[in-house]
Nucleic acid binder design. Structure first.
Lengths: 211, 211
DNA sequence: ACTAAAGTACACCGACTAGTGCAAAGAGTG
DNA sequence: CACTCTTTGCACTAGTCGGTGTACTTTAGT
């Protein structure tokens, strides 16, 4: 499953410094505006070293994107387990889960700024590569939420025929709504507004899927 | 209501050629990659003429963005009237409406490619300007859908307490879902898949809001 | 046909970019 | 120590970009 781990020919410590810096600069500037020199400066590394570790700017971007996707997907999986493993008050648990999931966006600002960059350049990213990223990131998060909902439904708390669809709808009604209005955190929303959106989203979800 | 109509000092015919070309090139390349020379070539116009009509690249982009937002908002308002004025079969009417709304995305590919560019550069767009765009585009579309739903609810076909929220939820469950998966049309979805998503979205919406 | 505004072609500037080549310094391993 | 791999700094290529200045031609109104 090693994502974009291309045969690295340099010191791994430097490689990590480069990817961290690249994530920051790519997130802040977008792919095109981000200059390799700026990434090198941010990483405290020679530009030549970057080209020692990565074939070109494009490969660097993709490796960083996949790395971040895996990282964030793992974090979200943890949030799912924390909130959805045992249900006491379904509505409140779904709200708490969604709020934590929204908070993950602000907890990984560099990554989600990069997500914006990817969505913007989607038309210029080779199809297979884009698919690899979707599979590692959003798609996996999706597929992991579905079994949780399925389990809750099996306990009689929800009425779900297609668990993946239900997962998609819950995500849309909460996280996607918040992200869309806040431009993935670029325009911050007051927490009270976030709470309202999430609560309303969960309410609608439950009205549609509660048994 | 004249959006970004800055005092134009040139022939309006040329101005329109420039904005049309700019919309195309900005949509295809994104803000940064799009070169003023490329826009001039696409418009069949001298680069100097562009700088006669627009102060700089940034103003050009914003004017184009606002112009397109108004145009598309008007088109969507028409779609709403066509499908939601008189309801015969609520579920089918909502599905048809949503499918037409999705089709608008592919009917204005340049504009929605530009929407992607805006969302990507949201962090670098001055707050007030971004707000002006949101108000002219997505926000207006939203506010126009709400009264339709309110009216349908008043006829006893829906049970809605907050019409704007309901409009947001219907939009999320249909258009947003499709757009997210297709990256606003950059990765085309088969029509059958679009139909499935929309039908499922409307179904969930009705389960939550049908009286 | 005269005039004034607008458009055009084109050279040009300064700044920036991705990527390379190379010689010298640094670091880890035997 | 010596050997090797990596990193570094820096100059360099070859190109692009936003934007301007200028001298010229076109267009529209009267």
């Amino acid at each position: 499953m090693a994502a974009g781990q291309s045969e690295s020919h340099g010191r791994p410590e430097k490689r990590r410094a480069i990817t961290r810096a690249a994530r920051k600069v790519f997130g802040r500037e977008g792919y095109t505006r981000a200059s390799v020199d700026a990434i090198a400066a941010e990483a405290g590394v020679s530009k030549r070293t970057i080209y020692n570790h990565f074939a070109d700017k494009e490969r660097l971007f993709l490796d960083v994107a996949l790395e971040g996707a895996n990282e964030v997907t793992a974090a979200i999986a943890q949030i799912m387990d924390r909130h959805l493993h045992k249900i006491v008050d379904l509505e409140q648990d779904l709200i708490d889960f969604s709020l934590d999931r929204v908070a993950a966006v602000t907890a990984f600002p560099d990554h989600f700024a990069l997500v914006r960059a990817i969505e913007a350049e989607a038309a210029r990213i080779p199809g297979p590569v884009l698919k690899a990223w979707v599979d590692a990131g959003p798609q996996t998060a999706h597929l992991r939420l579905a079994p949780h909902l399925r389990r809750i439904a099996d306990r009689g708390l929800l009425e779900i025929d297609d668990a993946e669809r239900a997962a998609a709808h819950l995500t849309l009604l909460t996280i996607t709504d918040v992200n869309q209005q806040s431009f993935y955190g670029a325009v911050p929303l007051p927490p009270s507004e976030i709470s309202k959106i999430v609560a309303a989203g969960v309410q609608t979800f439950l009205r549609a899927y509660r048994s």
